[in-house]
C-alpha cells in the first residue's frame, strides 16, 4: 500500500488505522494491531512535530508484507532531517519541548522487531519498521 498525506496532526489517526487495516490480512492479534498503530503513530507524529515543524509538507507511507509474514512499513518525509540520529534515538531525548516524552523512537523499537532510520539534514528522514506478525493462529516465521 501507498499513502501520501499532508503533515497535519488530524491525519495521525487515519495513517495508523490505514496501516493496521492493511496488516489485517495476516489476522494479527489485538496486541499486534495495537503495536502497529502505535509505531505508525510515533513515526507520523515525528514528521509533523519535528520534520515539518516550520514548513508543512507531505508524509509518504508505504507498507508491504513478505512471504514470511513480516510487515514492513516505511515512513518518509522531506523535512529538516535529524542532525544526530543516534542522539535522537536515545530514550527521553527530545527537542520537542514541554509534554513531549522523548520516547518516540524507543516506542518504535520496543513495539517492532527492527527499526532503521536514515536521515540527512535539509533532505529528510526515512524510518523503516519491520514487524513479524504471528497472528491469532501463529503464522510461520
Amino acid at each position: 500500500m501507498r499513502l501520501t498525506v499532508d503533515s497535519r496532526s488530524v491525519n495521525e489517526s487515519y495513517c495508523r488505522v490505514a496501516v493496521a487495516a492493511f496488516a489485517a490480512q495476516l489476522d494479527p492479534t489485538v496486541e499486534e494491531i495495537s503495536d502497529i498503530k502505535t509505531f505508525v503513530s510515533e513515526a507520523v507524529t515525528n514528521c509533523i512535530v519535528h520534520a515539518y515543524l516550520s514548513i508543512p509538507g507531505k508524509i509518504y507511507i508505504t507498507a508491504s508484507l513478505t512471504e514470511d509474514n513480516t510487515l514492513i512499513v516505511r515512513i518518509r518525509d522531506k523535512g529538516i532531517g535529524i542532525a544526530d540520529v543516534s542522539k535522537a534515538r536515545e530514550p527521553l531525548f527530545t527537542t520537542g519541548g514541554d509534554d513531549r516524552s522523548g520516547l518516540g523512537f524507543s516506542v518504535m523499537e520496543c513495539f517492532s522487531d527492527k527499526l532503521k532510520v536514515v536521515s540527512k539534514e535539509g533532505v529528510g528522514t526515512t524510518v523503516t519498521i519491520y514487524k513479524h506478525i504471528r497472528g491469532k493462529n501463529g503464522n510461520e516465521a
Partner: peptide, 10 residues
C-alpha cells in the same frame, strides 16, 4: 482505546 507516547507526555 489507543494511546501513543503523547499520552505518556500528557
Amino acid at each position: 482505546h489507543f494511546m501513543d507516547s503523547s499520552g505518556v507526555g500528557l
